[in-house]
Design a protein around this nucleic acid. Sequence first.
DNA 1: GATGAATGAGCTTTCATTCAT
DNA 2: GATGAATGAAAGCTCATTCAT
Lengths: 196, 196, 196, 196
Amino acid sequence: MTDSTSARVRAASAKRRRLTAAAAEVVHRQGAERTTIADIARAADVPVGNVYYYFKTKDELVAAALDEHARHLGELTERLERLPDPRDRLKGLVEAWVGQRDVAARYGCPTGTLAAELDKRDEGGLDAEAGKVIRLLLDWVEQQFRELGLPEPDGLALTLVGAYQGMSLLANALRDPGIMTREGARLLAWIDSLEA
Amino acid sequence: MTDSTSARVRAASAKRRRLTAAAAEVVHRQGAERTTIADIARAADVPVGNVYYYFKTKDELVAAALDEHARHLGELTERLERLPDPRDRLKGLVEAWVGQRDVAARYGCPTGTLAAELDKRDEGGLDAEAGKVIRLLLDWVEQQFRELGLPEPDGLALTLVGAYQGMSLLANALRDPGIMTREGARLLAWIDSLEA
Amino acid sequence: MTDSTSARVRAASAKRRRLTAAAAEVVHRQGAERTTIADIARAADVPVGNVYYYFKTKDELVAAALDEHARHLGELTERLERLPDPRDRLKGLVEAWVGQRDVAARYGCPTGTLAAELDKRDEGGLDAEAGKVIRLLLDWVEQQFRELGLPEPDGLALTLVGAYQGMSLLANALRDPGIMTREGARLLAWIDSLEA
Amino acid sequence: MTDSTSARVRAASAKRRRLTAAAAEVVHRQGAERTTIADIARAADVPVGNVYYYFKTKDELVAAALDEHARHLGELTERLERLPDPRDRLKGLVEAWVGQRDVAARYGCPTGTLAAELDKRDEGGLDAEAGKVIRLLLDWVEQQFRELGLPEPDGLALTLVGAYQGMSLLANALRDPGIMTREGARLLAWIDSLEA
DNA sequence: GATGAATGAGCTTTCATTCAT
DNA sequence: GATGAATGAAAGCTCATTCAT
């Protein structure tokens, strides 16, 4: 493989990455249904006709957007795992959520709103994909609760992640980032209050 | 003549009501964006062209669907208010949510998912409408907490309604009605545990 | 025929007259194509469904609008014929045109613009109708020139009416009523300058 | 590659030009309102959906038709300007009008009828566009009168162009090309008669 | 006759996807 | 691989006309 070939491959991958990132962002802002391929192509600065070399259908692009959100989640949990105390990790998670309050108040939780939208579909199997990303988050949270030795770590995970989805939705529907702050504080106190 | 006239009027209103009900249901199942006027017309057994006699635009139909959900909510709270104890009212509300667990697991909370979808829009003002319906619920819940003499009833309302939205979203994303049951039980216990 | 019957007939005719007048005005302002039956019905304060008792088709309404303009023209020429001198009649005609300068600058000559619009059609025969109304005007003008003993009265009529149509169109296209005033003055001088 | 590229570009532009020419012609014949996008697409031999690649809305196509007429006018005046005597230029203009007598008798002056139609609109700003094209003609005519050293060249221009619009409308309404010939002859004599 | 409601054909526009080079 | 252009299947909406009472 010559230099120019690998350069080409690298450039191609760069385009794919740009399209993925653009899809994640634009779909978060506009929703999957209202987002056109042209929207994403424009945001990624890729010619429309070229998109189809990287993604065979629009659904694949939406799936890529989901993957991108999963990747972001992975980066976040990886960072949090450097903290020795699982309790601190969970609190760090909540703080990360609150840190995104303005985006949440404007567009909701990227994964949650996308899951809600995709669940309205019957075909394509994309609905299941969205569930998987949320499951990733649930599993990680559950693991932290388990390491804390708390009973029913799965139930606690549902409660915490559910609270996050709920407060994001309310903040979004009421356009009020303050809801994220307030509920975030409550969740931090709640985490602190849990005892084995 | 009077009879047939009022029959006509009744029939006409009946059609409008049929369209509203159909819109509420189909939009809940498919989402506003994926729902076509023809879908709603078919569900209401009304010719497509005739829909526009009752609703000037698709957005008006979506707004009618929202109103319908607000009406349902009104009926529910009215029924609950017959209970003398505000605590019982709130518990009745949670039980109603759990009673809808299968629908929630399949399509999410009607108002919540619609709010999330409409909030992706910039124009039309429908996004604000969805927020208002959620506000109705929040206000009613807050009022119950206030009557119980609890501090920060608005914060408690956010927590309860947020939990509902969150558990609906998770149940929907994971297609698991059990989540509604489990979290519902937790909320009932939480309500019981609150003291002035 | 009882009183109530004739009252009904009178009322019905009144409706027909109202519809005709409304058609003439609304069509002049919006053009035949952009005018809906509902527009005319609203302007005439007649229920839409009722229009069809007086006019079987939209084209009949447009034809009625044309007749209305012909009637207006008839009233004008009748008034002018009270003047003993044909030259004064022609000058009175020009003055009437100039008197309508604001309407002309906004919507053009009612008959001329309607004729231009209807002439784009192949079917229905309405195009010929519009020509007839213009012919009425031409004939009357020609008759005045003839009474003045001028040669080629038909050619003079074409020149005068053509000038009117042209200045109306320019005034309309440039939205400048001053054109009506200026060209009107020129036509008055021209009429005065003609000698047998 | 360069050849085929430029061929592609040329072909693409050719399509746009074909659409523009078709729009100019079909709109002249049928009027803007009665002309459908499908009509123009068919005349240009372009699939309907593809039209929107070149023109975002129907109004843009109508504007293109107007531009086309302005272009035709520009070509004509450019040709006339090769004549040294402004008087000959004006007479050449009148002769060009008379040369179009059959088209005028069938469909009227392209710019005049379009202006009359578009002036019935309130929105879109297309009405002003039509006025601009007529202004171009007025300005050119005025310039010729000015070069002849005649007083009030702007008024003379209004008279000449107004006469053209008027005779076109009458020829059209009465379906008589002879009107163009007759009035054309009169205008030629009039131009000859003017002295500084 | 009178009237609100019904009907369906037709129009503009959008957009995912495919094609030709 | 890259790209502008092409394609056609919807979708929302309008409106002349007809219907039922």
